[in-house]
Amino acid sequence: MHWRQPTTLADLAEGQEYRLDRIDLPEPDARRLMELGFLPGTLITPARSAPFGDPRVYQVDGSAVALRRETAAKMFVSPVRKDQPS
């Protein structure tokens, strides 16, 4: 899958589950995101959003957190493969 354009959280459709690979944000922001549950390797499901899709609520690690598109666009994800243990 590495040859493809990397997918970010901002590209995802509601309801699909993805795995977080990395966060491309300055350390304090990345840190708070990790404290909120956005750790690399965690599964994330996009949920409802404000009108026009921004900000969007994401289901992550048992809670729901709202993020703006500009933040989600710096968080890279890959699809969860069925044959891999999660």
């Binding site: 909120l36 900000p55 609520v57 709202a66 993020l67 933040t71």
Partner: peptide, 9 residues
């Protein structure tokens, strides 16, 4: 500069 909006629901 804009600070990211992160809010737990």
């Amino acid at each position: 500069a804009r600070t990211p909006f992160m809010l737990e629901m």
